[in-house]
Design a protein around this nucleic acid. Structure first.
Length: 323
DNA sequence: AACCCTCTCAACCGCATAAGC
DNA sequence: AGCTTATGCGGTTGAGAGGGT
C-alpha cells in the first residue's frame, strides 16, 4: 500500500487566494516552516490542497521574492540561460535570486519573446529569424510548426531597426546567438545535448564558463548573488539570498557564517531572513520573527498577526489586501 | 461613458519523477 | 519489486487591468 492521497478534492477551494487564506498560510509557515505540503492546509486551517499552498507560497508569499519587472541584467541573463536550457524555467529561476519560475516564464512569454522577435531573433532557437518569405518566393519552404515561430518581421514591412528601441538594440548587441539545444520535439534529448554543449568550446555559455552545472543546486554562490543584485549592498555581515529557486530546497545557510539568526536554529526554513528587506519592513520583520520564535502561544501573537495583516496595506501585491 | 481589444500574471492542470509503503 | 502517493515542473487558462476608439 502506498501513501495516502494528497487531498480529497471534495470541498477544496480553488481560484484566487483571499487575504484571510494568505494570512493563515503566512502565519503557518512562519510558525512551522516549510514541511510536508500535504499537511499544510489541514494544519493551517485552509480548504486548499497542498499543491495550491506550495504554489501560493513559492510564487507569491515567499519573503525573499523580488517584486517588479525584471531588470535589464536579469533579462539578459534569462535570455542567455534560455539559450542554454530552453524552457526549463525552474533551472533558469535558480540563477535569479528572488525570482520564481512562474514569474520568469510569464515574463518570457509576454515580454522577452516579443522583444527578441522584434530584434529578428527566434526566441525558440535564439538564431536569427529566417529572411522574408513570400508565397511566390518560396512556396516550398514550410513555416515552422512550432507555435513559437511566428511570422517573421517582414510581414509588417518594418525593418528590424525601425521598430527597435535603444534598449532592444543594446539587448541585441549583448544577446548571444547561441544555437539552442532545445527542441520541443526533443526535450528528452536535451540533457544529452546540454552535456555535449558543455564540451563544445565554441559555445560560450555562462553556465559552463562559470564552472557549475545547472543540474546541481545551489547554482549561485553568495558572492555571485551580490554581484547580480545591485541592491545587495551589504559587504560583510550577511549574504543576500539563500534560496534561489522555488524548486530547489537546497539551503545556502552554510555560507552565512555571520548570520545573525543562526543561533536560533530555525526550523527548516529555506529562505534567509536577511533577504526579507526586499519588501518587508523592520516592524513586520520583527513581528514575523516573534511569531516564529514564540509561536502561537506568545502573548504578542495577536499583535504580530495584526502587523502581518498591516503589511497588506503596505504591500498590496502580497495579496493581503483587507477586503 | 461604454464598449472592445490586448496584455499581464496568478492559478490551475497534467505529466514526470521521486519517494514511501 | 511493484504499486501508490507526493512533489516539482512546464504548459495553459482566464479574470482583471489598462488603453484605444
Amino acid at each position: 500500500m502506498g501513501r495516502q492521497p494528497c487531498c480529497d478534492k471534495v470541498g477544496l477551494k480553488k481560484g484566487p487566494w483571499t487575504a484571510e487564506e494568505d494570512k493563515k498560510l503566512i502565519s503557518f509557515i512562519l510558525t512551522n516552516g516549510q514541511c510536508c505540503w500535504r499537511a499544510v492546509p489541514k494544519l493551517a486551517g485552509l480548504l486548499r490542497c497542498g499543491k495550491s499552498c506550495r504554489l501560493r507560497w513559492t510564487n507569491y508569499l515567499r519573503p525573499d521574492l523580488k517584486r517588479g519587472l525584471l531588470s535589464e541584467s536579469e533579462e539578459k541573463m534569462v535570455i542567455d540561460l534560455h539559450a542554454q536550457l530552453g524552457n526549463r524555467w525552474s533551472k533558469i529561476a535558480s540563477h535569479l535570486p528572488g525570482r520564481t519560475d512562474n514569474e520568469i516564464k510569464n515574463h518570457w512569454n509576454t515580454h522577452i519573446k516579443k522583444k527578441l522577435r522584434k530584434m529578428g531573433i527566434d526566441p525558440l532557437t535564439h538564431k536569427p529569424l529566417p529572411p522574408p518569405v513570400t508565397d511566390h518566393q518560396s512556396p516550398q519552404q514550410p513555416q515552422p510548426k512550432d507555435p513559437d515561430h511566428h511570422q517573421p518581421l517582414q510581414s509588417s514591412g518594418i525593418s528590424d531597426n525601425d521598430c527597435m528601441g535603444e534598449e532592444d538594440k543594446r539587448l541585441m548587441e549583448t544577446t548571444p546567438l547561441i544555437q539552442s539545444p532545445v527542441n520541443t520535439e526533443a526535450n528528452k534529448e536535451e540533457d544529452h545535448v546540454v552535456r555535449n554543449n558543455r564540451e563544445n568550446p565554441l559555445i560560450p555559455t555562462m553556465e559552463f564558463n562559470n564552472g557549475f552545472s545547472t543540474d546541481e543546486v545551489p547554482l549561485i554562490e553568495p558572492h555571485e548573488i551580490n554581484l547580480l543584485d545591485p541592491s545587495a549592498t551589504s559587504s560583510s555581515s550577511s549574504p543576500t539570498i539563500a534560496t534561489s529557486s522555488s524548486s530547489s530546497s537546497s539551503s545556502s545557510s552554510s555560507s552565512s557564517s555571520n548570520h545573525t539568526l543562526e543561533y536560533l536554529e530555525l526550523p527548516n526554513f529555506d529562505w534567509d531572513f536577511t533577504s526579507l528587506d526586499y519588501f518587508w519592513d523592520d516592524e513586520l520583520m520583527t513581528s514575523a520573527l516573534d511569531l516564529l520564535i514564540h509561536g502561537g502561544d506568545s502573548d504578542r501573537h495577536n499583535d504580530n498577526i495584526a502587523t502581518v495583516e498591516a503589511a497588506a496595506v503596505q504591500y498590496p501585491r502580497m495579496g493581503l489586501e483587507l477586503s
